[in-house]
Amino acid sequence: METLKLKYSLKDGDFSNAGNASSNIKKNLKMLGINAAVIKKMVVSIYEAEVNMIAHANGGVIEVFIDEEKIKAILADVGPGIPDIDQAMKKGYTTASEEVRQMGFGAGMGLPNIKKNSDDLKIESVVGEGTTLTITSYYKS
């Protein structure tokens, strides 16, 4: 199977559309006939990251690459960056605004949940420049 590529641009603070990209990605993965449990773990990770990008990071770009053995999502923002990634990975650590909490998020559970649901998670962040998450699921393994 050829690599399928999906690409989405997110606007900063566009809470009403948070989840649109994840929803479209889920529909594409279902059409490809990928196992439902694999899809759930992947889209939960991408959705958590999508909410983060809209809530904290001035929006950004989500790219998803699907080939015959893996799904790889690259989520790149131009936000403030994460000064201490180890701290951000701790359950309960949060810098969320009241607006984010009103959406049902912002409890410091996002990044740990992304890690739990992915086979591989890479976080690259430069303060003042932005953060890129690379989430991979090896669905044929």
Partner: peptide, 24 residues
């Protein structure tokens, strides 16, 4: 009411009861 909590569930999908009345 905390959607992050709902997203951590691994078991069979339950009925969701929530006071969070928005699209999220």
């Amino acid at each position: 009411d905390l959607m992050s909590d709902v997203l951590t569930l691994e078991e069979e999908a339950p009925m969701l009861i929530t006071g969070l009345a928005n699209t999220q």
